[in-house]
Design a binder for these strands. Structure first.
Lengths: 329, 329
DNA sequence: ATGAAAGCGCTAACAT
DNA sequence: ATGTTAGCGCTTTCAT
């Protein structure tokens, strides 16, 4: 069993309040003698304050919730690591919840986390505005990571990279490399603005290309989508460039293309987004735009926790992306 | 603010105890009328029991801790997902802690988690027996995932695959494929038995090969190790086969080999272990031995939580591995 | 300088 | 059938 203040107090022959005070450093009015005695006792007994009791009393648990689609999707572990590293600095625990982008699961996650009295929430890639209703979230502060640029800012912190710009750059690169027919494969989640698509469209329009819906395929941020997208698009069009909504899609696309005997980048150039850890090991190594996932997690946690502990305001912060040119495009 | 039993009780004009009873279904002795009234109130008010208060009272928080080296290492997210999925079924939360295999961090994680009153702990790839000391762990039940076969069983649950067998099979495969000089690159953590190495050695001995320390390199389970291992070994030996302790190592090794102009599998055959999600996208696609990471996480959580909630015993369970033959070896 | 007491939200044994 | 009470471990105000 864990020691309690009560036991220590008994052993030291003082009151619970006194022990509590020295344990928490509020010991200005404690005599040097008792202080020392208690300190030693605490030390030798390996006393560990009960964070649950403390949390109940203070209405603050020093834990935050991390709500994400799927931790086994390679983009998220980096974020998770950033969050946890930062949280640990502040003595915060993080409990994570996978939702698979399912509304029901999302809601039950939030409710669950609230019952656990988390002090704050970090969301990533949630596409439904509804999730941020007062009803569901209550007064818990939240910061969202990786939701593109969001306009209607409720009182919510945001850490994001400009995915529209990233995809715009990616598309421009392909154009400048001489691609004539550039396809776009990405995800189609929620009814929010699709910034990635907008970036693609913007580049095409700027260079007076026609946007051809036959060269656009949207489904989900996974390999399957990349694979299917290529099959579908190539059945109809002859393309020589491909912009992918993320690296997983690019991975699936490369797979389909290779099986189809295409040479990359000779026949078709491909650009991805994220720079997941294995992007450089693909064949050919994937040209992609890196998002600073770890940093994003860190920044999100920092903002949230400082808000919780010091009342510092939530804010929006854009983190820079960076093109990593390799050989796929 | 969240509703409390007290408030509900006031609104319903009954005592706290009564509300508590119907909320928890212990309402055999509550009149149909009050029951109904309270139920409706609970429903309409969106009452959410405070799990922290409940935890304090019951000395059971319905949360477990997951201690792992690094969530951003691609082998672990799958396990994490398995754990979380299973935990959710039982209404358990999981808080995760990255340790980077560092003793100090490991210990502080455990202490931290204990202060949070977690009901149980899942460890993965912890190499130090010391971690499981009574001192550190206390009476908290623990199950370990992915530690190879362990003999000195304390009262600890285990979910594992037979890595010795897996590496043995991998090595045998290379031998049967005609490899003469088979190197081994793996990690070297802790002072525990190195089952993976033993599998390699066993196969070599069985086929009357000499075990040459110049063909063995051990450092860590990452790409760097694979890369360095190849550089070091190839400076001295001419090898035509390589067994890797995990897929990350294989990835680094392939990288080094490719840069060195080697043809895989013509000049050298390679086998990995884990079958991480991108193993099939490497060039060439990696022949490797799959560990059922998701299942391992699920099984571990199931065992642990059933132990916690029903007192079911902890046990050891071996999960099967499976060779996935692709083109690297 | 120290301690008594109230209370965080909940459960459960024990009245009534 | 319902309520009173004590207490989980802690913090904090207010005595002393």
């Amino acid at each position: 069993m864990e020691k309690t203040l009560k036991q220590l107090a008994q052993e030291a022959g003082v009151s619970i309040a006194t022990v509590s005070k020295v344990v928490n450093g509020r010991d200005e009015h404690i005599s040097e003698a008792t202080r020392k005695r208690i300190r030693e006792l605490v030390e030798s007994s390996g006393y560990r304050p009960n964070a649950i009791a403390k949390g109940l009393k203070e209405k603050k648990t020093n834990t935050i919730g991390f709500v994400l689609p799927d931790i086994s999707n390679p983009f998220f572990p980096e974020i998770a690591r950033g969050i946890e590293d930062e949280a640990k600095k502040y003595g915060f625990a993080v409990v994570f919840c996978n939702t698979d982008n399912d509304v029901v699961r999302e809601e039950s996650c939030i409710s669950f986390l609230r019952s656990k009295m988390v002090d704050g929430l970090i969301f990533t890639q949630t596409t439904r505005e509804s999730v941020f209703s007062k009803e569901l979230i209550g007064n818990i502060p939240v910061v969202v990571v990786d939701r593109g640029i969001d306009t209607n800012s409720k009182n919510i912190g945001k850490i994001y990279v400009n995915c529209m710009g990233a995809i715009y750059d990616a598309t421009c690169r392909l154009i400048k490399q001489g691609c004539e027919k550039i396809a776009f494969i990405s995800a189609n989640l929620g009814k929010e603005r699709d910034y990635r698509y907008e970036g693609y469209e913007k580049a095409l329009k700027q260079y007076k290309r026609t946007v051809d819906s036959a060269m656009i395929f949207k489904n989900d941020y996974n390999e399957e989508t990349g694979y299917q997208g290529i099959q579908k698009i190539c059945r109809i069009c002859r393309i020589d460039g491909l912009v992918c909504g993320n690296d997983l899609i690019a991975t699936g696309a490369i797979q389909a293309l290779s099986e189809g005997g295409w040479k990359i980048p000779e026949d078709i150039k491909i650009v991805g987004l994220d720079d997941v850890m294995f992007a450089k090991y693909l064949s050919p190594p994937l040209t992609t735009i890196a998002q600073p996932a770890y940093e994003m997690g860190k920044e999100a946690a920092k903002m949230l926790i400082r808000h919780i502990t010091n009342g510092e305001p939530l804010y929006s912060k854009e983190l820079p992306y960076e093109m990593r040119v390799r050989s796929s495009g």
